[in-house]
Design a protein around this nucleic acid. Structure first.
Length: 850
DNA sequence: CAGTGAGCGAGCTTCCGCTTGACTT
């Protein structure tokens, strides 16, 4: 047995480190935290110094058991979790849970996974830093107290199952606030003047802009009229060198932003792909807030730049982290091997690696150098000057490999308009020019941009809210709770004026453009807005943008041993708890209720609000003897914008149409959205189809389509094949097997050969060795995204290693694995799987997942 | 679970941060 057991947080890290250390070291992973507060309300004893009750969660039991066993056998246990608050706490939890002995335990830290860094760390072990541990406890306890006291207030006052927390509630607030800013924004118009000048020589045309803008049509046309008889002279000509420097290498947040802008990845996709790159050893750790590169990395980057591009392109740079609350336990995200310019594999991995490699390499390259020329062009009849800017690159430097993109939307370009900073022809001071064309274009001010997932992460990071490991989950949480939706929205058409002066003639045109169209942006839902307003009204301190920054300061003081953590929590908790009690006692139910007007037919009031099942409209009063009538809002509608007319329309649903083939046809809206009911059958309307505008013909069309889909379209190996469209796109179904039909097939006209091909391919991919049916559960071995697994009814079980070889199971071994062995593997994970009553348990587990 | 929205009351929901692994109409 190894003399030393070294424990890190990540298994991939463990594997790397094991290679650096000799045989005397066994390196294992804790898989992050191994203990957490119990899930019940008694986790924290308020009256006893916030004493905490911890437990090892079910999915960590096996890890803890193994570490415990190995720790017992080892002479020394090295706790090598990350050097930050959470990492220190993980070491402490390990110490406590594994029952380690003080004299046999050493705590070490390193910021980079390189051999010299690890060896150095081992030479200078220390003890667990309890100040840091207490800071983490304060963080954990505060988050639990806030989350588990605020959420129940929402259950009472708004709707069950809602949630609130230090991080998520601020994320929602940012989105709600931004939406309102956009809604009240009134664009102002101004005329922008652009001229095309000519030097007189062929093809020597360039663009110049007037720095001033004119607010009115009269001013703009006056300017153009003055230009008719004007002459133009270059009043000043200035050339100066400019330069641009590369951005630092990626952190989690900047990687998410750049992958979103350049590759169109959601933040969670970025993290999934990065995780794969990390696990296959291609990049360093992907959850980091540090822009620092290790010495090893700096040297490797230098060598690579020198050999690939030459010494002129190299410039060593060390970057400083500027984001608030950064804990810098890791390096920046960089390729493990700089000499590997590209990798092979999955397309998204290839692209993300490319981005990471370029950004890291560029960060160690020299500046790009430009020569910027500014010409001011005088107008004989006016005092204003046109300005032309030109830029010539003198040396590309880091731009040879990488150009960072920005969030700023590019200016709307109009016909024939050139971008700024083009190349200017040779010019001289005093030179006279001809104006070939001068345009005055009406332009509008823009409201602030809606958040994308990535720009929200950027904002949260600036505010110091959340951590690299939680950005992606937070974005998912606010969407899963129904506070926020990510979607596309159509823009509106808007007309604008363009005046063109050419050949002495002034011409007016009216053009139209689409404005306000959004793609994959975050919008608040009605319930998101109602919850946000409730929290802002009653818990201003918690949803304040600076709340986290303030408590972080206090956590830092605890970490430095300046403050007792229980004192800090006590002074936070008592006023907070009082506020919670007050709110429960005195606050009204929050529903965002709004009076829309009076129903002309009945003379009753019409309201809109958020109810138990979502946004609704209501006719009549709740406390009247005669009960009010209700109708759900359609998906595209919102209580903040619905009008009385639209509300009254909704009461027409459900709407009975003429019978079709002797069965009733009804259009309505249910919990799963708008539907056509035909006899007993419900058919969901296609996405975005407005139920109020479904005509008799359209309803029949939808019904016919459904009948066609349900009828078998083919037969294969004696079993029918049907077609349909599901949540994941078009599919064919054969024998309970759903097979997605990729876009390259013509789904409407699949032929027999294509259908057989799809089924064969699916069977091959599944490598499905159907083994046995046990009661209602199917037992099979299949190939999934992460390799082979056992299917046991609805459950998918990890396959693990083959005990015979202590390696992962190979497909060959699986093909001959006896049924008894498979059953044994199943009972290892579900002890009562094969007891007659065990069925209930597996079902319950499956339900719980939902 | 497909036109609900009261109130009763059981029993449930919920936080953030550290990890990897998991699977469908």
């Amino acid at each position: 047995m190894a003399k030393n057991l070294l424990i890190v947080e990540s298994p991939a890290k463990a594997k790397t480190i094991e290679g650096y250390l000799g045989k005397d070291f066994l390196v294992k992973s804790s898989y992050g935290h191994i203990r957490d507060l119990v899930k019940t309300d008694d986790a924290i004893d308020i009256n006893n110094n916030f004493d905490q009750k911890y437990e090892v969660p079910a999915d960590k039991k096996a890890v803890v058991a193994e570490l415990k066993k190995l720790a017992k056998e080892a002479e020394t246990v090295w706790l090598a979790s990350d050097e930050d608050r959470e990492g220190e706490a993980i070491s402490w939890h390990l110490f406590e849970t594994l029952g380690l002995k003080e004299d046999k335990t050493k705590r070490i830290v390193f910021h980079e996974i390189t051999k010299p860094a690890i060896l150095k760390a081992i030479e200078s072990p220390r003890k667990i830093d309890y100040n840091l541990v207490h800071a983490q406890q304060a963080r954990r306890v505060l988050d639990r107290l806030v989350g588990f006291e605020l959420s129940p207030v929402l259950w009472k006052k708004v709707k069950p199952s809602l949630s609130a927390g230090r991080v998520q509630s601020v994320a929602v607030r940012l989105i709600v606030d931004r939406e309102r800013e956009i809604n009240v924004f009134k664009p102002t118009a101004a005329y922008k003047i652009v001229a095309i000048f000519s030097t007189g020589k062929a093809k020597e045309l360039f663009r110049a802009e007037l720095p001033e803008r004119y607010d009115t049509e009269a001013e703009a046309t006056k300017f153009l009229e003055d230009c008719i008889s004007a002459s133009y002279t270059i009043n000043s000509l200035e050339t100066r060198p400019t330069k641009r420097s590369p951005a630092p290498p990626f952190t989690t947040s900047t990687l998410q932003q750049e992958a979103s802008r350049k590759l169109g990845f959601s933040v969670s996709r970025t993290m999934t792909v990065a995780q794969k790159l990390y696990e296959s050893g291609k990049i360093t750790y992907m959850r980091t807030d540090s822009v620092n590169l290790s010495e090893t990395a700096l040297n490797a980057a230098a060598a690579e730049i020198n050999s690939a591009y030459g010494a002129r392109y190299f410039e060593q740079r060390k970057f400083k982290t500027k984001s608030a609350g950064a804990q810098e336990a890791h390096e920046a995200i960089r390729p493990t091997y700089f000499e590997q310019h590209t990798i092979s594999g999955d397309a998204s991995e290839v692209r993300l690696y490319d981005l990471i490699w370029k950004r890291a390499i560029a960060s160690q390259m020299s500046e790009a150098q430009f020569e910027k020329t500014t010409a001011k062009i005088g107008i004989s009849t006016r005092k204003e000057n046109f300005v032309a800017n030109g830029e010539v690159m003198k040396f590309d430097g880091f731009l040879k490999v990488y150009m960072e993109s920005t969030d700023e939307e590019t200016e709307v370009h109009l016909d024939g308009e050139e971008t700024d900073n083009a190349i200017l022809p040779p010019l001289s001071k005093g030179q006279s020019l001809q104006a070939q064309e001068i345009k005055a274009t009406e332009r509008f001010s823009r409201p602030p941009a809606r958040y994308t997932e990535a720009s929200l992460v950027k904002k949260l990071e600036e505010l110091g809210i959340g951590r690299p490991s939680t950005y992606a989950p937070t974005i998912s949480t606010v969407q899963n709770r129904g506070y926020v939706v990510k979607e596309d929205r159509d823009g509106k058409s808007r007309s604008f004026c363009v005046f063109t002066l050419a050949n002495g003639n002034l011409k007016k045109e009216t053009k139209t453009e689409i404005t306000g169209a959004e793609k994959s942006k975050l919008f608040p839902t009605d319930i998101g807005a109602v919850v946000n307003d409730f929290l802002v009204q009653h818990f201003k301190g918690i949803v304040d943008f600076h709340f986290t920054a303030t408590v972080e300061k206090q956590f830092d003081e605890i970490a430095q041993g300046l403050t007792e953590w229980t004192e800090m929590i006590k002074s936070f908790y008592s006023p907070f708890h009082t506020e919670v009690e007050n709110t429960i006692q005195t606050a009204d139910r929050a529903s965002g209720e709004r009076l829309l007007g009076v129903d002309p037919a009945s003379g009753k009031n019409v309201y809109t609000k958020v109810g138990k099942f979502g946004p609704l409209v209501q006719i009549g009063e709740v406390d009247n003897e005669e009960k009010p009538r209700y109708a759900s809002l359609l998906k595209a509608q919102s209580i903040s914008s619905i009008t009385l007319e639209e509300a009254l329309e909704l009461f027409k649903l459900p709407m009975k149409l003429a019978d079709y083939e002797d069965k009733e046809v009804i259009i309505g809206v249910g919990r799963f959205g708008p539907y056509v009911k035909w006899g007993e059958a419900f058919i969901s309307l296609p996405k975005n189809e407005d139920p109020l505008s479904v005509t008799q013909e359209r309803a029949v069309e939808i019904i016919k389509q459904k009948i066609e889909v349900d009828a078998p379209v083919a037969e294969y190996k004696g079993h029918p094949v049907t077609k349909g469209k599901g949540r994941f796109g078009p599919f064919i179904k054969w024998n309970d097997l759903f097979i997605n039909v990729p876009a390259r097939y013509n789904f409407d006209n699949l032929n027999q050969a294509e259908i057989e091909e799809l089924i064969d391919k699916k069977l091959e991919k599944e490598a499905g060795r159907f083994i046995q049916q046990w009661e209602t559960e199917k037992i099979a071995i299949e190939n999934g995204r992460w390799g082979p697994f056992i299917r046991f009814g609805k459950q998918m079980l990890k396959l693990g290693k083959n005990p015979a070889t202590n390696q992962k199971f190979t497909p060959e071994e699986l093909a001959v694995l006896p049924l008894d062995e498979v059953k044994k593997l199943i009972t290892e994970q579900i002890p009562d799987a094969f007891e007659p009553k065990g069925k209930n348990k597996t079902k319950k587990a499956a339900v719980k997942k939902k």
